[in-house]
Design a protein around this nucleic acid. Structure first.
Length: 722
DNA sequence: AGCAACCGTGTTTTT
DNA sequence: CACGGTTGCT
């Protein structure tokens, strides 16, 4: 192995990388080379301190960050990098539980439920319990989730004194019981059950503690209480723990992140050494200064100021539109202008506070034919047909998963309705068997019509047979068999948007292909399902396609772009109306701080005077955050006069990014069959397309106005549906 | 049992 | 406004 070359590091970074054993806190400001330090530290520990790859556990915030770190280490270290545990907290816990969860009474093939699975399980548990006067579902969910993030069991919650905590503790207990019956865990359980495992089985903890001689944690400011407890437990004795973070970038408090973890690290680990990285390599002096004038309005922080050798750069641009559409149009116009100069669409990102804001921005970009992609919002694996198919896979992997089984029975429709399922549930409860096993006895149930019970038996036998063979099959093969024998495709064809749904099915098939290739053969179903459950929005970010990126501010952590727009800088929206408490306000401010510091060269902050919010048009006041930034650093773009008509795309030169343009079209944008809306002609369907690029035209058949030939360059068409 | 149309409801951010 | 859930009809 080549000796590690540390020349690429500045003195502060080098010190942190080469520090010896014991607790280390690296306070790394935005753009200060945090990831670089972390990867070099790992490389240093392996190549200079001669640790084995197996002795390290590195925890990141997203799978994508983990993958990137692994990749960088591959180039620094070579193949041994692939033996490192680099993963998110949730994935690491899932992996630990796969080995040892039997001690908690679950089976190793447990299913990981996503939020909506968990919600319906909870809802059914409440229903079954028949509790009068219970608070509403949402509040209960939030409270249980919080409890799990704090490491609290139902008993612990019962002893705490929040309003309704006693009632909620009962529901929490029932919910856990139900999950246990289904051999399923939710996101919070991954952490909490691992914690409980360590508490109740010291020999297991000892084993893992002996294995991991060194812990590294990225984004430490966003860890919650259980994660902290897990780290304490694993580090105990050696205290070889190195955490990296920046309290100014803590933006997940609402999800249980406890900023005290980082603020009190020195108290928790008295031997801690602290390294500060304050040189920023990313942004211009102006952007950094503006971000600083904003963040000093927070009180819950350690004073520090980033500095940079980069040039001063341009002032920050502020723009105020009359409406959100006006604002979006400015963004589109400005991106078009930048792209005529020295930038590409992929250099640009638009951030917003809420997912709902993306729509009007998308429309503006479509009008200018600027290629873009939206990160987050509707996730691929949340689409109905995908969840339907995953229900099959889950039942095959874990037949106790009655939630997925119920879903499977209903799609495609087989004539087995709620009444029959209820009858089987009763049977199952009576005999102490699973719903799946009850299916095998359906024909002996007098309350189920013979016609239906035969259906049930057939389905049961088919599933049993598939389960028996699944361990020798690839995920792709299982999926294909499910799709072929269940009549799933025929069912999709019958749906209105069947074509789009079939496309996502084939996307799922290729995801399975890729997984099978990675996994190296059959038997990987459980791993596939786990990976799918733990995938996050941020994992999907990619510069592929040369497109402008659109995402919420929460998704933007760890990214950087030459040009950044932050849209919707308005009171009620940002800071959000639901985040008005003092602590929450500081978090909103940090959120903007994180967004601003993603920018390398140009930063735009935009707002609108009136906006459609929650279905109503409302006056909107500029965000207080705008006033907190030093006005000397801001240049105001001309305010559009009231009622000025929105500029037609025809006034803008067409930008041709043919490669990404094609990607856009194959995504189905204005494909034949697409349903669109025209400002004067109303709704219609694209019948035929002619030409491409500048001269592209389309025949559109309008419901009321008949068929028209439109130049896409001019027509203000809005896509309604595929 | 299954579908379509209706109504009402709840709208931040997400591993 | 978009979704889920419910109702009522076939």
């Amino acid at each position: 192995m080549v000796p590690l070359n540390l020349d690429a590091l500045n003195p502060a970074q080098r010190e942190a990388v080469t520090a010896g054993d014991g607790p280390i806190l690296i306070l790394a400001g935005a753009g200060s080379g945090k990831t670089r330090v972390l990867t070099y530290r790992i490389a240093y520990l392996l190549s200079e301190q001669k640790l084995a790859a197996e002795e390290l556990l590195a925890v990141t915030f997203t799978n994508k960050a983990a993958a990137e770190m692994r990749e960088r280490l591959q180039t620094l270290l070579g193949p041994q990098a692939s033996r490192l545990w680099i993963s998110t907290f949730h994935s690491a816990c899932a992996r630990i539980l796969r080995q040892d969860i039997e001690r908690l009474g679950y089976r190793r093939n447990f299913t990981v439920y996503d939020e909506s699975d968990a919600a319906s399980t909870l809802s059914r548990a409440i229903e079954a319990a028949n509790l009068p006067g219970a608070p509403n579902l949402g509040a209960i969910r939030v409270r249980i989730d919080q409890a799990k993030n704090e490491g609290l069991t139902p008993q612990d919650l019962a002893a705490s004194e929040g309003p309704n905590d006693a009632v909620i503790a009962d529901i929490y207990r029932l919910y856990q019981q139900r999950l246990h019956e289904l051999n399923a865990v939710d996101f919070g359980d991954l952490l909490l059950l691992t914690h409980q495992l360590f508490q109740s089985h010291p020999e297991v903890l000892r084993r893992w503690r002996e294995r991991f001689n060194y812990l590294l944690v990225d984004e430490y400011q966003d860890t919650n209480r259980v994660q902290y407890l897990l780290l304490r437990a694993l580090a105990a004795g050696k205290d070889n723990i190195c955490v990296v973070g920046d309290e100014d970038q803590s933006i997940y408090r609402w999800r249980g992140a406890d900023i005290r973890n980082i603020l009190e690290f020195e108290r928790d680990f008295p031997a801690a050494r602290i390294f500060k990285l304050e040189q920023n390599y990313r942004s211009t002096k102006t952007i950094l200064a503006a971000a600083h004038t904003l963040i000093v309005h927070n009180t819950e922080r350690k004073e520090k100021e980033l500095w940079t050798n980069n040039e001063s750069g341009d002032p920050i641009t502020a723009f105020t539109g009359n409406t959100e559409r006006d604002e979006a149009d400015f963004i589109g116009r400005e991106i078009a202008r930048l792209c005529r100069e020295s930038y590409k669409p992929a250099d640009v990102v638009v951030f917003y506070r809420t997912n709902a804001q993306s729509r009007v921005i998308e429309e503006a970009l479509v009008r200018r034919r600027i290629p873009y992609y939206v990160v987050g919002g509707l996730r691929f694996y949340d689409q109905r047909e995908i969840k339907d198919l995953l229900a099959y896979l889950r039942v095959i992997s874990n037949s106790a998963d009655a939630l997925s089984l119920t879903r499977l029975i209903g799609t495609p429709p087989r004539g087995i309705g709620a009444r029959s399922i209820e009858a089987m549930e009763e049977l199952a409860a009576r005999e102490g068997m699973t719903l799946f096993d009850a299916m095998g006895r359906a024909e002996s149930e007098s309350s189920i019509a013979l016609r239906i019970s035969r259906q049930i038996t057939a389905l049961h036998e088919w599933l049993r047979d598939l389960i028996a063979r699944a361990s020798t099959m690839t995920v792709r093969a299982i999926l294909e068999e499910v799709i072929d024998s269940s009549g799933f495709l025929k069912y999709l064809e019958g749906l209105i948007d069947g074509t789009a749904r079939r496309e996502s099915v084939s996307e799922l098939l290729s995801a399975a292909d890729i997984f099978d290739a990675d996994f190296g053969g059959p038997g990987g179903l459980g791993d596939f399902l786990e990976r799918v459950s733990l995938i996050s929005d941020a994992d999907q970010v990619s510069a592929k396609g040369g497109s402008v990126a659109l995402m919420t501010l929460h998704t933007c952590k760890g990214l950087e772009y030459p040009v950044v727009f932050v849209a919707g800088m308005e009171e009620e929206l940002f800071p959000h109306s639901r985040a008005q408490g003092p602590g929450e306000l500081e978090e909103e401010r940090r959120l903007l701080y994180v967004g601003m510091t993603r920018a390398r060269r140009l930063l735009y902050l935009t707002n609108a005077l009136s906006r459609e919010l929650f279905g109503r048009r409302q006056e909107s006041r500029p965000s207080r955050f705008l006033a907190e930034i030093d006005p000397g650093l801001i240049r105001r773009a001309a305010l559009a006069p009231r009622n000025e008509p929105i500029r037609m795309p025809s006034t803008e030169p067409y930008i041709d990014y043919s490669e990404s343009q094609i990607a856009h079209e194959t995504n189905g944008e204005l494909a034949v069959g697409a349903r669109v809306e025209h400002p004067t002609f109303g709704a219609g369907v694209v019948r035929r397309r002619e030409g491409r690029g500048e001269g592209a035209k389309a025949w559109v058949h309008f419901d009321r106005a008949g068929t028209k030939l439109l130049m896409l360059k001019f027509a203000k068409l809005r896509l309604i549906a595929q």
